Amino acid sequence: MKQKLSVVKIGGNIIEDVQGLSHLLELFSQMDGHKILVHGGGKKATEIGNKLGVEAKMTNGRRITDSQSLDVAIMVYGGLVNKKIVAQLQALHCNTIGMSGADGNSIIAHKRPVKEIDFGLVGDVDSINSNNIASLLKAEFTPVFCALSHDGKGQLFNTNADTIAAELASGMSNEFETTLYYCFEKKGVLQNIDDENSVIQHIDSKNYKELIAKGTIADGMLPKMHNCFQALQNNVKQVCIGDSEMLQGTTTNFTTLTL
């Protein structure tokens, strides 16, 4: 019987909320079994970049990563945000280890091919080194991954944190019974964006298509949901979307996704 593994991705608004982040990390530290935390830090990278004179470049809501922007991402994701989270979790007696995709050769990627837009030094994931990550988990470490991957040839890439979480959950699913959690400031996927309590409690591949056709799932939720269903197709047992309270296991008011 496979051991259970929880992969938890923290949304950017939670990272910026000191009290919200502290509460989430406390709940995360109390989760049973093996676990992995994944975070980005785009808002903080924009803030620090502006102070350094490196302006964020965006197109259709997506970040363009040139060499200077990548340096800022490495500093902020791999340094500032990652180490603060690791230190907070250590204070909660959760033995964490901060990771990028280069550490332990964990996440191999390639530069995103140029089609209509050149996203620069943005990586699309090729593979997860599940053996090395499993070794850390079995040694009772809890990896905390930032949103950086690498190509194995010395080049780091900025990679979407939602994607990294989905790829980690998928890559570890052969050895573990894996559940993927996307934690953000909402209670789940909402039927009505203006009603915080209109949570859609279950989405499968059938009503997923219906919700897209109706426009209920749109904009920034589309790529997140794509990652969710891609993970489910790669043997992830279940995906959950909601606020930090779902990690406590005492609420059912969040969205679960299955095939």
Rank of each mutant, 00 (worst) to 15 (best):
S135Y: 14
N132D: 02
K153T: 11
T250Y: 10
M1K: 15
D194E: 13
G61D: 15
V144S: 05
K35H: 12
L92E: 09
D124S: 09
S106I: 03
G242R: 00
A161I: 02
A165G: 14
Q191P: 04
V38S: 04
A134G: 10
V189I: 15
T46M: 05
L37E: 06
N129H: 11
H34P: 01
N253S: 08
T96I: 05
G78Q: 06
K206D: 03
N13G: 08
G20Q: 07
I10M: 10
G33V: 08
G220P: 00
V199K: 11
F229E: 00
E47M: 12
K35I: 06
F157D: 11
S22N: 13
M172G: 03
G42H: 10
C94Q: 05
E245R: 05
V76C: 02
G188P: 02
Y77C: 06
L247F: 11
T46V: 11
M172P: 06
N131I: 03
G101Y: 05
G33M: 09
L37G: 03
V125D: 14
D219L: 04
V86W: 03
D103L: 10
G61H: 14
F119M: 04
F145Q: 12
V239Q: 00
Q191A: 10
D124K: 08
I15R: 01
N197M: 12
N207S: 09
